[in-house]
Design a protein around this nucleic acid. Structure first.
Lengths: 350, 350
DNA sequence: CCCGTCACTGACAACGTTGTCTTTGATGGT
DNA sequence: ACCATCAAAGACAACGTTGTCAGTGACGGG
C-alpha cells in the first residue's frame, strides 16, 4: 500500500526535539502545561521539518473537526433544470473569501446547500450539518432571515454567524455592513455633486437593508434642506424592476437629475432605461447603486456604488467562529462601507 | 470529552448483520470476495441504521483521501486589494456544480487557489496539492493552458481533468464543449432569421475556442453561399473591447444587420454600443453572444447566446475522476452546446 | 480418501492524533 | 523533615476505518 507523501508526523517532530510525542501535541494545541524552553524547542523542530498536522487523524481522535460550513440557499429546481438560473454574484465573493480565511485559520470549508424550492421554510438543518461533523456555520443571506432555520441552528448547539441578516436579533452573532451609513454617504455624495432633485428606487418592502437605505437618503436630504425629499419609486432588487421604476421617474414633468438605486441590479436597469430614452449617463442623469456587485463593473458607464464587502464579512465571520471557544456573547460586527466612484455619476449644474 | 453525534459505526452495522466488521468494510468497498447473501444482509443493516462512513477514519487508514481539488487561478494582488476585482462568473457555476457532483459521489471538494499575479507561470503545484492529500484535480481555465502546470500535474501522479482547455493535448484528460458546433449553430440561426450581412467580433489571437468559433462562422456562411463572409473585428473578450469593436462595425458604410460576438461580455458591449448610437436591439440590429454566462441575463434585452455549461463540465469531470481507478486512457469528453434564444436577436427582412 | 486450491470470512495491527491517567520532581506550609 | 500540592512530561488507550495475513469449509483431481 502506497502511503502518501511520507509527510513528517508528530512522532518525527518529537524525536527531533527529544521529547515524547504527547508533549508535541500539547505544544501544538497551546496546552499551558508545557515549559517555555521545551515549547520553543518543539516549535523549532516542527518548523524545521515543515510539519503540518494530519487533519484526518486530529478529527478522528478529538472532538473537533476543523471544518466550517457555509450554508447557502439555492432553489434546487433551478439547479437541476436546463433553463435559466444564476447564482447571486455576492455568493462568489463570500465563498472565496471564506475559503481563504479558513485556509489561513487552519480550517476547511464545506458548502452546504439548503433547498428552498418548495417555498416552505427549511424546517431542519441539511443532512451534512445535522450529522454534525462541523465546528461552525456561516449563514449566508437570505437564509439567515429564516427564523426557523436560526432556531434549528440554536438547538444544534453548533456555533454560527449570520451574514448581513435582515432581522435584528440580539441573540444571534452576526456580521453586517453599515447600510444606513453607506446610503447616507452616497446621498451626501450626490448632494455634493450639485444634485437636488434626486430619485430613489427602493427595494422590496420589509427588507431591512432596503429600508435602512431609503431612510438614510430621506434623512440626509432633510437634514441638508428641510424641503428636500427623494422621489421614491418602488423596485424589486432586479434589473427589470429598476428599468421600469427609472422609466416612471424619467416620465415625470420634472424628472430627477440623479437616481439612487437601492441595489446595483436596479441601477443597471436604470441605465438601460436612460439609454432607451436617449438620455446620456452621466452627463444628463447621474445613477448610483448599492452593493458593488459584479454587475457594477459590467454596465456602461460603470456604476458609482457603495461597496458592501462580502469578502470582508466572510473573513470576519471565520475569525469569529475560530475564536468561538472564548465564549464571546453574541458578537455583532459592523463593517465599514465605502463609496466607489465610477463613471455613472457626474457634477450637475442647473 | 463530548463525542459528536453518536453516529453508528461500521461495528454497529456488523453487529446488526451478524458478521465481523471487516466484512462490512469489504461490502462497503465493493470487494468481490463477499457472498451475495451476506452482501445483501450487510447493505440492509447499513441502510437500517442510516450508516455513513466516517471520512476521517477512512482517510487515516487507507491510501485515499476522498477529496478532490478544484484548481483555479486568481490574481492574489486583486484579492488582497481594496480595489476593483471580480471573479469570472463561470467559476461560480463550475464550482457549485463540482461541489454537488462531489457530494453525490461521496467526495469532498477543496478549492485550491493558484497565484498568477507575478505574471510568471506557476512553476509548481500549490502547497495544498503538493502535500498530496488529494485524490484528483479539476483544473479550471485558464490554468489548464499553462503547460508547466500540466507538466507538474503529470509528474505528481495525481489524476486530473482539464476543463475546456485551450490547447489540444492528446495525453491530458479533458472535458470541453463543442465550440465549433455551437458557433456553427448560432450562425445558422442568424441565417435562418434572414441575416446576410453578419459581423463577427473575435476573441484574442491564439485562443483555441475563439479561433474555433470564428472558423465555424466563416465555414457556415461560405457553405450557405460562397460569396458570404463575416465582417470580422478584433476583440479581447471583455465588455470594453466589445463596445469598441461593435462601434467600428456600425460605422461602416454598410453596417451588419447582426453581430455575433465570440463571448457574452463582448456582446454586452455591443448592445451598449448600439444603444449609444440609438440603434434598437433587436429590431434594427441582432446581437448574439457565446457562453451563456451570468451577464447574458443582465443585458437589456437579454442575450441570445450559445450555452456552454460549465456546470455539466464539472459534473463530467468529477465522474471521470471518481472512475479514475479503471485506468481510462486520457478520456476526452465533448459536451453538447445549446443555442439559447432570448431577446437580442430577431428576424430581418431587407 | 487425501490434499491442494479456491471462495470466503475473521483477527489484528496499522494510520496519526487527542484524552485520560500516571509518574516524576519541585515547591511550600507546618 | 514530611506530606499535600502542583507543574511538567510520559504511557497508553481510544477514535473508525483499511491492509494484511491467517484461518475455515467446500470442492475437485489423483
Amino acid at each position: 500500500m502506497a502511503r502518501r507523501g511520507g509527510r513528517p508526523t508528530i512522532i518525527d517532530v518529537a524525536r527531533r526535539a527529544g521529547v515524547s510525542f504527547k508533549t508535541v501535541s500539547r505544544v501544538l494545541n497551546n496546552n499551558p502545561h508545557v515549559g517555555q524552553e521545551l515549547r520553543e524547542r518543539v516549535r523549532q523542530a516542527a518548523a524545521d521539518l515543515d510539519y503540518r498536522a494530519n487533519v484526518a487523524a486530529r478529527t478522528l481522535a478529538g472532538p473537533r473537526t476543523y471544518t466550517f460550513a457555509l450554508l447557502i440557499a439555492i432553489r434546487m429546481v433551478d439547479l437541476a433544470s436546463e433553463d435559466d438560473w444564476y447564482l447571486p454574484a455576492f455568493l462568489s465573493d463570500l465563498q472565496f473569501a471564506a475559503m481563504l480565511a479558513c485556509q489561513k485559520a487552519g480550517y476547511r470549508l464545506t458548502i452546504e446547500i439548503c433547498d428552498v424550492s418548495a417555498g416552505a421554510l427549511p424546517p431542519r438543518l441539511p443532512a451534512g450539518i445535522a450529522a454534525s461533523d462541523i465546528d461552525g456555520i456561516i449563514v449566508a443571506p437570505p437564509l439567515c432571515d429564516h427564523i426557523e432555520m436560526v432556531e434549528a441552528l440554536d438547538r444544534s448547539g453548533i456555533p454560527y454567524v449570520l451574514i448581513a441578516p435582515g432581522l435584528d436579533s440580539e441573540t444571534a452573532p452576526s456580521v453586517a455592513t453599515d447600510e444606513y451609513g453607506g446610503a447616507a454617504a452616497m446621498t451626501r455624495h450626490l448632494l455634493a455633486l450639485g444634485h437636488r432633485r434626486i430619485g430613489f428606487i427602493s427595494g422590496p418592502d420589509g427588507h431591512r437593508a432596503a429600508t435602512a437605505r431609503l431612510k438614510a437618503c430621506r434623512d440626509v436630504l432633510a437634514a441638508f434642506d428641510e424641503t428636500l425629499a427623494p422621489l421614491v419609486e418602488g423596485g424589486a432588487f432586479n434589473v427589470a424592476s429598476g428599468l421600469r421604476a427609472a422609466d416612471a421617474l424619467l416620465r415625470l414633468a420634472e424628472p430627477p437629475t440623479a437616481i439612487f438605486c437601492a441595489n446595483d441590479d436596479m441601477a443597471a436597469g436604470a441605465i438601460a432605461a436612460a439609454m432607451q430614452r436617449g438620455i446620456r449617463v452621466p452627463e444628463q442623469l447621474s445613477i448610483a447603486g448599492f452593493d458593488d456587485s459584479a454587475i457594477a463593473h459590467i454596465t456602461s458607464p460603470a456604476l458609482t456604488t457603495v461597496r458592501q464587502s462580502f469578502g470582508a464579512m466572510a473573513t470576519a465571520a471565520v475569525k469569529l467562529l475560530a475564536a468561538a471557544d472564548k465564549a464571546a456573547p453574541a458578537a455583532h460586527i459592523i463593517l465599514p462601507y465605502k463609496v466607489i466612484e465610477r463613471g455613472s455619476t457626474a457634477r450637475w449644474s442647473a
